[in-house]
């Protein structure tokens, strides 16, 4: 194949925006002409030198696939960053909201929907962040990890949107006597800002999912075992990097036994929420606190059952 023919094929295979595509094609052309000149200097005829240079560069579909993998990894890392920013922004607004009108939160279940959705988002984003952090700096994350990051981001974004909608519903249906949003202009602006970041993170999650799916469809994709096994490896790698290898054994055990770990966490949450609720009500609100604690503990268990596989927390 000639260099010109190869460039046409590569252009057809590349799934990139115009500017990076033009730059890559220009760099490829320069590279191939350099290589061709070197091969010609070694005694090859021009036609043979071009064919050898093209073969040495790699099949156009393979080069395009490498680009797709690298681009998908970058998109995933950025989307995780935006997701974390969205979570922090909205969690900040949520705390400000609760502080400005604490009776709403105490009148369970108002405000609780948003609180529960935020917890789902926190777990999903935590999983996505760990996976992303492990592969930052590498040329491309394995496809299994990309898919797992995309799924975790999707769960996190849906949870964040639900949290925003739930809190918005509380805001517009405030009971009389409680501070209304129109009296807290800064809070409304902060809420709108957080909403914008949440929507941005949703766009990032959609792009990540689309690119991960495209990479997964490539014939040369990397597969490195199950998402759950990879998460344990990621945690171990990060702890080793942080010079905390001794912490990896208990964490690996927890990840290998998600059900006992989740039930223990649910029991702890039940005790903590009940104790906090009783203390907050001066010892009179045991029934209400226990109800809230039971819902919290149940959601932890239901969360693992419903989203554990999607997030790669269980097999």
């Amino acid at each position: 194949m000639t260099i010109d023919g190869y460039l046409v094929e590569l252009e057809r295979e590349l799934r990139l925006r115009r500017a990076p595509r033009a730059r890559l094609l220009r760099e490829t052309e320069d590279h191939l002409h350099d290589l061709c000149a070197e091969l010609a200097a070694d005694g090859l005829a021009r036609e043979q030198a071009e064919a050898r240079a093209v073969a040495q560069f790699g099949a156009a579909a393979t080069v395009a696939a490498r680009f797709a993998e690298a681009t998908a990894s970058t998109t995933a890392h950025r989307a995780v960053n935006v997701g974390v920013a969205a979570f922090l922004a909205y969690a900040g607004v949520f705390v400000a909201f609760a502080t400005a009108a604490s009776p709403v939160l105490r009148d369970f279940p108002q405000g609780a929907g948003s609180l529960f959705a935020l917890q789902f988002a926190a777990v999903a984003l935590g999983v996505a962040f760990v996976r992303s952090l492990r592969w930052r700096g590498a040329v491309a994350a394995p496809t299994t990890e990309l898919t797992a990051i995309a799924r975790a981001l999707s769960v996190a974004c849906v949870a964040l949107v639900c949290a925003v909608v739930a809190e918005g519903a509380v805001a517009v249906s405030r009971p009389a006597g409680v501070v209304v949003w129109s009296d807290g202009r800064w809070l409304t602006l902060a809420f709108a800002g957080a909403l914008a970041v949440v929507l941005l993170s949703a766009i990032g999650a959609i792009r990540t999912a689309a690119q991960a799916q495209a990479v997964d469809a490539l014939p040369s994709r990397d597969q490195h075992g199950s998402a759950a096994a990879l998460l344990a490896d990621d945690v171990e790698t990060l702890l080793t990097r942080a010079r905390l290898p001794q912490a990896s054994r208990p964490l690996r055990w927890l990840l290998a036994h998600p059900w006992p770990a989740t039930l223990a966490l649910a029991a702890l949450a039940f005790a903590a929420v009940t104790a906090t609720g009783v203390a907050g009500s001066g010892g009179n609100g045991l029934a209400g606190a226990a109800t809230l604690a039971a819902v919290e503990a149940s959601l932890i268990v239901v969360g693992l059952a419903a989203f554990g596989r999607t997030l790669g927390l269980r097999h």
């Binding site: 890559l24 790699g58 080069v63 490498r66 680009f67 690298a70 970058t74 040329v139």
Partner: peptide, 10 residues
Amino acid sequence: EGSLYPALHR
């Protein structure tokens, strides 16, 4: 050789 450029861009 073609795998170098995706790596460089990343």
